[in-house]
C-alpha cells in the first residue's frame, strides 16, 4: 500500500485568497507513506507548514525522508516553518542538488543566511538532519525503493554524468507491485530527453506531473511543464493515473478546472485516469 497526500500544489509563489480555495495556494509539498508509516516528503514548499502542524499533533517522534526535486526557493521555502525540526530527537534525511562549491547543505544554508532568515543557519534546528546528493543509486526507505532520475539526461550521455545544480530531479518510489513517479518539473527544451523519460515513467501506477500551463505556444522556456505534454508522457509510458500539480500562480480554481477538463478531453477514450491535485487530496493504491 502506498498513500499519497497533497499539502501544496503551486509552482513559483504561494497565492492565498478566495480564488484558490479549492485547489489551494501553497507551494509544492506532497507526502508518501507506506503501511509502516515510513514518511517521504516530496519538496518542502509552504505546504510543509501545515504538514508540520499535523505531525506535531499526531506523532511522538518524527522521522522522514525529504526528496527535493529542485533546489529553487519555491521547493525549499517551508523548511524554516516545519515545527518538528525544533524538537530534539526527530531525525531527517534530505536528498537534493546543490552547487559544486556549496553542495546541497551549503546551498540550503545560503538560503537561510542571517540577512534572509531569522533562523540564520540549519544548525539552529535541533532535530537531526542529514543531507545527501542523489546519484544513480537507488535508496531504500521503509518498504519503498526510490530511484532518483536526472530529467535533463539525453541519449549518449555517459552513465556517470554529473548531477547538476539547479536542474530538476525526478523520483520513482516503488514497492514490488506498485510505483509512483514524482516529476513536477523537467528540462527538455529540445525534446532529446523524452524517450528516456518515458522509459523512467513506464507503467507507473501514479505519475505526479507539473501542469503549469496548457501547452499552447509561447509558454515554454520557463522550465515548467505543460498539461498537454503531461498527458502525452502518461499515455506513452502506459501510466494508470496522471495527477497534475505545480500549477501556475496565475491560475484560479476555474482555470485549473478547465485545464483538467482539457487533459481529460486529450486523453479521449484511453484508460488513463486524470486528477487535478488539490491540497488535502489523498490517494491510496
Amino acid at each position: 500500500m502506498i498513500q499519497v497526500r497533497f499539502w501544496g500544489v503551486r509552482g513559483d509563489i504561494a497565492v492565498p485568497g478566495p480564488e484558490t480555495i479549492h485547489y489551494g495556494g501553497n507551494t509544492l509539498c506532497t507526502t508518501v507513506t507506506d503501511v509502516q508509516d515510513a514518511l517521504c516528503i516530496l519538496d518542502a514548499g509552504t505546504g510543509l507548514t501545515a504538514l508540520g502542524r499535523e505531525r506535531m499533533a499526531t506523532v511522538g517522534r518524527d522521522q522522514a525522508l525529504f526528496l527535493v526535486s529542485h533546489s529553487h526557493w519555491t521547493h525549499t521555502q517551508g523548511i524554516g516553518f516545519y515545527a518538528p525540526f525544533f524538537v530534539r530527537g526527530n531525525t531527517y534525511a534530505f536528498y537534493g542538488l546543490g552547487t559544486d562549491e556549496l553542495g546541497f547543505r551549503g546551498f540550503l544554508e545560503a538560503q537561510l543566511a542571517p540577512a534572509l532568515s531569522p533562523l540564520h543557519t540549519l544548525n539552529h534546528l535541533v532535530a537531526e538532519l542529514a543531507f545527501h546528493e542523489p546519484t544513480g543509486e537507488p535508496l531504500a526507505w521503509g518498504s519503498m525503493t526510490i530511484h532518483p532520475y536526472p530529467t535533463w539526461r539525453g541519449p549518449g550521455a555517459p552513465a556517470d554524468e554529473t548531477w547538476q545544480c539547479g536542474r530538476p530531479v525526478a523520483y520513482r518510489l516503488s514497492q514490488p507491485d506498485r510505483s509512483l513517479v514524482y516529476l513536477p518539473r523537467m528540462e527538455d527544451p529540445a525534446g532529446q530527453c523524452w524517450e528516456r523519460l518515458v522509459a523512467f515513467c513506464r507503467n507507473a501506477d501514479v505519475l505526479i506531473h507539473g501542469a503549469y500551463h496548457d501547452g499552447a505556444s509561447g509558454q515554454d522556456g520557463t522550465g515548467h511543464t505543460s498539461a498537454r505534454s503531461a498527458v502525452r508522457l502518461a499515455q506513452q509510458a502506459g501510466v494508470r493515473q496522471l495527477v497534475l500539480t505545480c500549477y501556475n500562480p496565475l491560475h484560479d480554481d476555474e482555470a485549473i478546472d478547465q485545464m483538467v477538463d482539457m487533459c481529460r478531453a486529450l486523453a479521449g477514450n484511453s484508460p488513463l485516469q486524470i486528477t487535478g491535485a488539490w491540497e488535502g487530496l489523498v490517494l491510496t493504491f
Partner: peptide, 19 residues
C-alpha cells in the same frame, strides 16, 4: 499583511494570507 510565511487557505480569506 501576514508575517513569516504566506498562509493560503479558508482560515485566512478575510484578513489575507500574503506576506
Amino acid at each position: 499583511v501576514r508575517g513569516s510565511v504566506p498562509v493560503p487557505g479558508p482560515a485566512t480569506c478575510r484578513y489575507g494570507g500574503n506576506t
